[in-house]
Structures are given as structure tokens and as C-alpha cells.
Simulated assay, not measured.
Amino acid sequence: MKVTFGALVTAAGVCGLLSFAFLATSLGTDYWYIIEINHANMSDFKNMSSHSGLWSINEGGKMHAYSIDPFTVNYSRLSDSERRMLNMHGAVVVMLPLSLVLLLFGGICGLVSSLARSPVLLTSTASYFFISSLLTLCGASLYIIYSYQALAETERLVGQQSLANIHTSFGWSLHLAWLSFSLEITIGALLLTAAQMAKLQHRVPSTA
């Protein structure tokens, strides 16, 4: 079955819409990090299980905004490890929303280059999506590093034994961010293929 130019750009468009929807949903939900308490062994903490997002945490069914703003906090009162974690969190909440904005502009560029059937524009837009995907990758990866360091800092402060009945995991909000990243890579590959096909189609009349 021969793949057509129209099929490639249509597939790229669908992937773009899905990528944008996945990342927007990821940023707007609070299942990035999940903390579960073993109620059988810790009956006094039955309401302490929580799940958190980039800007808020849901603890015991109640939503709370993060009490520390990484952009306004007084860093002179914090330890070196606390400063590092705040810097990482601040970078995450800038990178991922910026990646969402870049996805929107990338969709517009992709539509224009597809309608123009320009190999140069299609290649440029594909490169744009590859660069945008790096921002999503860095943001999601940095969040994982931040979460592990926060857990390590908590263990240092309260002791590993105190956390023996606590299970932590990454939730579906983070998984949606990874899906968005994968789709951005797919979009770039599809547009590169479409650019090569458009280039061949332009050459055919000139050689006839």
C-alpha cells in the first residue's frame, strides 16, 4: 500500500492534536506523584495518602496549593538541598507550559507548510518539533529527578524506618507527558518523510 503525502500530513496533524491534548491534560491534573499509606500498619494516618501535580497537592481528599513559590521564596533561609529542589521545580513549571505553547505554534507552522507543500518549510517544521520535544523531555525528566531528591531529603530528615509503610509512585499525569513527547517525535518523523516526498514530486515535472 502506497503512503500518500496527504496521509502523512494528516497523520502528523492527528498526532499534533493528541500531543497537545495529552500535555494540556497532564499539566492540568494532579496525578504526577502518588503517596500511598499502608493503612493496616498505620491506622492513625488513614487520611494522609496524597497525589500531587505541578502546582497543587491533594491530601486526604482536600486540595492544597504548594505553600512555597519557587519564584518569590527567600532563598537565604533555605539549605543547599532545598535551594536545588526549588530551582528544579521552578524549571519544570516553566519548561512544560512553554512546551505546550510551542506545540500550538508548531501546529500552525505544520498546517502552513503542508498546504504549501514546501520541502524547506516541512523540514524546518519537523526540526521545530524535534527541538520542542527536547523541552518536554527535559521537563519530565527533571520532575523525576526532583521527586527522587525530595524523597531522599525526606528520608534524611525523618529516617528510612518512618517511611517503611509509605509507597510512592509516578501517576498517569506524568505518563501523559511522556506520551506527548513520543508523539512530538512521531510528528517530526512524519513531516520529514512528507518533506522528502514533496521534494521528489517537485523534481518529477522538471525531469519530464
Rank of each mutant, 00 (worst) to 15 (best):
I34F: 01
E82Q: 14
Q149C: 08
L111D: 10
A194G: 04
K46L: 02
V101F: 03
N165W: 08
T207Q: 12
N87F: 03
Q160D: 11
T4I: 00
G16N: 15
A126K: 02
L78T: 07
D80K: 11
A208G: 13
S180H: 04
V120C: 02
Q149H: 11
L98Q: 07
V93C: 06
V14F: 01
L190R: 01
F129G: 06
S141H: 03
L98D: 00
L183P: 03
Q161N: 14
F130Y: 07
L163C: 07
L179N: 11
V73M: 06
G90E: 07
F129E: 06
A11K: 06
P70N: 06
Y146Q: 08
E155C: 14
S118D: 02
A12L: 03
Q160H: 12
G110I: 04
T29I: 12
Q161Y: 09
T125V: 12
S19R: 02
N47W: 00
G28H: 12
H175N: 15
F181L: 10
F130E: 07
M85I: 03
A194T: 05
Y128H: 02
T154D: 11
G171F: 05
G60M: 15
M197K: 13
V158H: 00
G106H: 02
T168P: 08
S79N: 08
M1T: 09
L98F: 06
V158A: 00
V120H: 06
L18K: 03
T207L: 09
Q196A: 15
Y33C: 10
S79R: 10
D80R: 12
L135G: 08
Y31P: 02
S43E: 15
Q201S: 15
G139D: 00
I187F: 02
W55V: 14
V14N: 02
G53W: 01
A164Q: 14
G61Y: 04
F105Q: 07
D30V: 07
G171M: 04
S124G: 13
L121Q: 06
T72E: 12
G110H: 04
T72A: 10
A21L: 14
F71H: 09
E82G: 00
D30K: 01
S67M: 11
N87M: 11
I37F: 01
I185M: 04
S114Y: 09
F170G: 04
S49M: 05
C15R: 05
D44H: 08
H167I: 13
F20N: 05
F105T: 08
F130W: 09
V94C: 10
G106N: 01
T154H: 09
E184D: 07
G159F: 07
G90S: 12
E153H: 12
V94K: 05
G171H: 02
L121F: 04
H89Y: 05
H167A: 13
L27P: 00
Q161M: 14
W32S: 08
I108W: 11
G6S: 04
V73E: 08
L192Q: 02
A24E: 09
A140K: 00
Y75Q: 14
L137G: 06
M95E: 04
A150G: 07
W55Y: 15
